[in-house]
Simulated scan of single mutants.
Amino acid sequence: MTKTSTSLPIGEIAARTGLSVSAIRFYEDQRLVQPQRTAAGHRVFTRADIRRLSFVMVAQRLGFSISDIREALSSLPEGRTPTKADWTRLGQSFRAALDERIAGLTDLRDKLDSCIGCGCLSLKACMLHNTEDVAANRGTGPRYLLGDSPTDI
């Protein structure tokens, strides 16, 4: 491929996204972006790759794995710039996972200062809600944060 006015070298992509060149190469190795090569063998990216890499950055920051991100990006078309409709479909597929994470974070925020059913029995409230560590009958870990209720025990 020859460099065109719409193709961008890796340094420019790095400057636009704030990612290091090595991070962009890593994402290429992980098949999250697929740059073309010039006749001289240099990587060249499309402007659409800026959006892909930005999505990768945000998704990773939200705790999604490279595998999750690769799967989501695989829904985008190859060989053409994704349209708004393409990105909307991708976003909708992520919505359920995001909603689940939001609910979990909200639950953690709201319950962290009360009994979480972990068995420590160190707070006075825990002695009321988890007397003699009855939450342990449901399994290991913070049972109330994992979805059990003190009334279920």
Rank of each mutant, 00 (worst) to 15 (best):
M1F: 10
Y144L: 02
R47S: 10
T17R: 09
M57Q: 13
D113W: 01
D68T: 11
I13L: 11
L62S: 04
T140G: 11
V134R: 15
D107L: 14
I66G: 09
G63F: 01
R47K: 14
T46K: 12
L62D: 06
S7G: 04
S75I: 08
T17S: 08
D110A: 14
I116W: 04
A96Y: 01
I116L: 00
G18A: 07
E71T: 15
S5Y: 10
G11R: 04
E12Q: 14
A59Q: 10
E132M: 11
L112T: 15
A125G: 10
E28Y: 05
R80L: 01
F94D: 01
S74P: 06
F55E: 00
A59R: 01
S149E: 09
G141I: 06
A135P: 07
T38D: 03
S93I: 07
L62Q: 10
G91I: 04
G117C: 08
P35R: 10
V56I: 07
V56N: 05
D152V: 00
I153W: 09
T6C: 02
T6N: 14
S7Q: 06
D148H: 13
V21G: 09
Q36N: 13
D86K: 07
A48M: 01
K124D: 15
I50E: 09
T151Y: 12
A135S: 14
L121A: 15
R109Q: 15
A23W: 02
Q60L: 10
S67W: 08
S54T: 14
T83K: 06
Q36L: 13
R52M: 06
K111N: 08
R138D: 00
Y27S: 11
L73C: 01
N137K: 09
Y27W: 10
S54H: 13
D86S: 07
R47C: 06
T17W: 01
I50W: 06
L32Y: 01
G79A: 07
F55A: 13
A39L: 11
T131Q: 08
E28V: 02
A85V: 15
L121N: 14
S67D: 14
P9C: 00
S67Q: 12
A40K: 11
I69Q: 02
G18R: 05
P150V: 07
D148Q: 09
G119Q: 09
C115H: 03
S122N: 13
D107C: 06
K111W: 02
R52I: 07
C118F: 01
T6A: 10
R80C: 04
T81G: 00
L90N: 06
G63C: 04
A135I: 03
S22D: 15
A135R: 06
A125E: 13
L123E: 12
R47Q: 08
N130S: 12
E100D: 11
W87H: 08
I50V: 15
C120T: 11
P150E: 04
K111P: 00
L145V: 01
Q34I: 10
